[in-house]
């Protein structure tokens, strides 16, 4: 029984949150890695693209809610998501046209584009806070729990409860669908293959009748969709606050780099590696260990390796470790 309790406590406090968080990071890192693979720079504005897309979704959700439209047990935000994606798509295509295209035509070095993207990041950040304000915003509705801790205890008769929030379940399911769609697109469609070809060998792609501007446009649109979905899911799971997306940039980049920049599979793996490390290292293990170990060995302290204040440091540490032993990332990206 104690063993089962230990597993349930572990699932409740570590596995479920880490899987949900990992899915969000994976979706974010996919956007970063696609831009890196195809446009060949690290897009620091990605966090704020997420914020912008999520903001548009929040706005639309509020309007739908005020009209009395809802999805029953599911959050209304899902209905507003396409609108958010369109808004974010419009934003990135505009920035590409007004900013990045100029540097692309100049054949600027990636490092210049990185700095440019930081400029875009600050401006997008400003726009988002200007429109929706810097404070936290609630927009989640519908059923709060798929399984609540109390129901779970009643069902199983265990001391420990397992709570799965609706948003966590939606996050994971959406992430799976999106990733499946993305991989289908990249591997099966001509446009997807063009994108892979362009990422593989730009010089050759240009000599193969692949229109670079089209590849770039499709890439931005996909990235906008990924960013909006990741941003909205994160906002549903926690709350929407513009500045948190800026902070998310670090674990997202850590995920993309750990997996290997430019490798979509790597971005997903990296997302989960970072999420699991972050959650396990900042979790207080007292409870789980209390169940799993004999009473005489049960720990007195919290058995927390690092306070949650340091969770972003975890991303850095994993980044350093992976880069030391495998500089191209776990899945051999293009960053050497």
């Amino acid at each position: 029984m104690d063993f089962l309790n230990a597993i349930v406590a572990l699932s409740n406090f570590v596995l479920v949150p880490a899987i949900a968080y990992g899915s969000q990071l994976a979706l974010g890192a996919l956007g970063v890695t696609l831009i890196y693979g195809i446009l060949r720079f690290s897009n620091f504005a990605h966090g704020d693209t997420m914020a912008f897309g999520a903001m548009a979704t929040v706005g639309m959700t509020w309007w739908l809610q005020s009209m009395g439209v809802n999805l029953g047990p599911l959050p209304t935000a899902l209905l507003a998501l396409p609108f958010g994606i369109m808004a974010a798509g419009f934003l990135v295509l505009m920035t590409d046209r007004m900013v990045y295209r100029f540097y692309r035509q100049q054949k600027s070095k990636p490092v210049i584009l990185v700095i440019v993207s930081m400029g875009v990041m600050f401006i997008t950040n400003g726009i988002v806070r200007f429109i929706i304000g810097p404070q936290e915003r609630q927009f989640a509705d519908g059923e709060r729990f798929l399984i609540s801790a109390r129901d779970f205890k009643q069902m199983t008769g265990l001391d420990e409860g397992l709570a799965i929030k609706t948003t966590q379940a939606i996050t994971v399911i959406t992430a799976i669908i999106i990733v499946a769609l993305l991989f289908w697109f990249l591997n099966k469609t001509r446009t997807g293959k063009s994108m892979r070809a362009y990422s593989d060998n730009e010089d050759l792609a240009l000599l193969s009748g692949i229109n670079p501007e089209r590849v770039v446009m499709v890439t931005w649109l996909i990235v906008a969709a990924l960013a909006t979905i990741a941003g909205t899911l994160y906002g549903l799971d926690k709350t929407f606050k513009p500045f948190t997306y800026f902070q998310l940039l670090l674990p997202i980049f850590a995920s993309a780099i750990v997996g290997g920049l430019g490798s979509p599979v790597g971005a997903i793996a990296g997302g989960f590696v970072v999420a699991f490390s972050e959650v396990t290292i900042t979790y207080a293990w007292k409870k789980v260990l209390g169940y799993a170990m004999p009473d005489s060995l049960a720990p007195d302290g919290l058995v927390q390796l690092l306070s949650t204040d340091y969770k972003f440091a975890v991303s850095f540490v994993i980044l350093v470790i992976v880069l030391l032993f495998k500089p191209t990332g776990l899945f051999n990206g293009k960053a050497y």
Partner: peptide, 16 residues
């Protein structure tokens, strides 16, 4: 070459 694609796919990429 597009190193991660097969030789056939490499050729199929060409036409615009």
């Amino acid at each position: 070459e597009f190193s991660s694609m097969t030789c056939r796919e490499n050729l199929m990429m060409v036409p615009a």
